[in-house]
Amino acid sequence: MKTTLDEMQLFVTVVDLGSISAAAEQLELTVSAASRTLTRLEHKLDTTLLNRTTRRLILTEEGTGFLQQARGILESVNAAEEQMAARKSTPAGRLRVDAATPFMLHAVVPLVAGFRERYPEIELELNSNEGITDLIEHRTDVALRIGTLKDSTLHARKLATSRVRILASPAYLQAHGTPRTIAQLLNAERHVLLGFSKPESLNVWPLQHPDGESVQIKPQILSQNGETLRHLALAGQGIVCLSDFMTREDRASGTLVPLFVKQKLEVRQTIHAVYYRNTALASRIACFLDYLAAELRERPFDG
């Protein structure tokens, strides 16, 4: 586009006020600068928009046609700016959220109804990936991640922490007995351990050998998905170590029983929301993070 919005605004203001000097005063320009801008606009359009006399300005036929178009453009720009301002006060638009399946099911989904009631103009798109998601490639606004963060290009906001526990179903314990020591737990002839295929760090359980070494288990059944491991434990297929956000209801109902309560170390996983650094965070993202953080404080996973 050859012409600029400033040039259009000056031309419209000159016509509305009837003089270059009045337009210059309103737009906080010098008269000479306003006159040069109007002349530049006519040169760009290769036409005369206004016939100037000592007493008044008269629109040419071309000026009349351009005036109508310029008004429409300026009104559209103003409407767009007003719409963006309104979106800041009333968050709207699509919000794409990514999280591992267990956290999505147990922590995010229960909060959706309340969030939608408060922010009905936001269209949620909830996606689950067990691995690390490339936010740009998957067009993701916010990813919810559990554990240590490594990507320094992302902005991270801590939302909550969740304790990890060693658990088994009553049916499993009745069939295999309750392990009382680490040696009994690691005895593959007596007990089946459920663990993660990746990352390997999730197979370090919150126990300590007498020499101070952490307990790294060798699972007989593996999965990348924590929800799969939870269901295996509920079905009596083995002993598992999972985060509290997944098992709150299971522990409350007694369908999963904590083991090594006194020997267990206090280990908590940190839950972060990550998103690309922006000079101004979109309001739909900010309100989602604020809502999630507040609700997670009100609903601790440890209960």
Rank of each mutant, 00 (worst) to 15 (best):
239 I>G: 02
78 N>I: 01
36 R>V: 12
40 R>K: 13
76 S>L: 13
209 H>V: 01
63 G>P: 11
127 N>P: 00
297 R>G: 01
49 L>M: 12
123 E>G: 04
25 E>S: 13
244 D>C: 02
72 G>D: 07
129 N>W: 10
195 G>L: 08
126 L>Y: 05
145 R>S: 14
18 G>P: 03
271 I>N: 06
243 S>H: 09
72 G>T: 02
144 L>H: 03
245 F>A: 11
87 R>P: 00
282 A>T: 02
57 L>M: 10
118 R>T: 13
157 R>Y: 09
292 L>P: 07
119 Y>T: 03
76 S>Y: 03
19 S>R: 05
233 A>S: 10
65 G>P: 00
101 T>I: 09
112 V>N: 08
14 V>E: 11
177 G>F: 15
92 A>G: 04
8 M>R: 15
35 S>H: 14
95 L>N: 07
70 A>E: 06
165 R>L: 14
180 R>D: 14
44 K>Y: 01
296 L>T: 04
102 P>C: 04
109 V>K: 14
62 E>Y: 08
174 Q>V: 07
191 H>W: 14
105 L>F: 10
253 S>K: 14
189 E>F: 00
299 R>Q: 15
248 R>T: 13
267 V>C: 06
80 A>Q: 12
45 L>Q: 05
291 Y>T: 08
280 A>C: 07
40 R>A: 13
118 R>I: 10
290 D>Q: 15
252 A>T: 06
265 L>Y: 01
74 L>D: 07
57 L>I: 08
266 E>R: 08
243 S>W: 03
281 L>R: 14
302 D>H: 02
263 Q>M: 09
286 A>D: 15
240 V>Q: 09
219 P>L: 10
41 L>H: 05
98 D>R: 11
24 A>C: 12
184 Q>C: 03
63 G>W: 12
258 P>D: 04
218 K>P: 00
103 F>A: 11
154 L>A: 11
12 V>M: 11
301 F>D: 12
216 Q>P: 00
106 H>R: 10
283 S>T: 12
158 K>I: 09
76 S>A: 15
146 I>G: 00
28 E>D: 13
96 R>Y: 05
184 Q>D: 15
101 T>Y: 13
287 C>H: 02
302 D>G: 00
176 H>W: 02
175 A>M: 14
35 S>N: 15
134 D>Y: 06
194 L>E: 08
91 P>G: 12
100 A>C: 12
36 R>F: 11
70 A>M: 09
96 R>H: 15
281 L>W: 09
274 V>Q: 11
212 G>I: 05
214 S>W: 07
253 S>Q: 13
48 T>R: 15
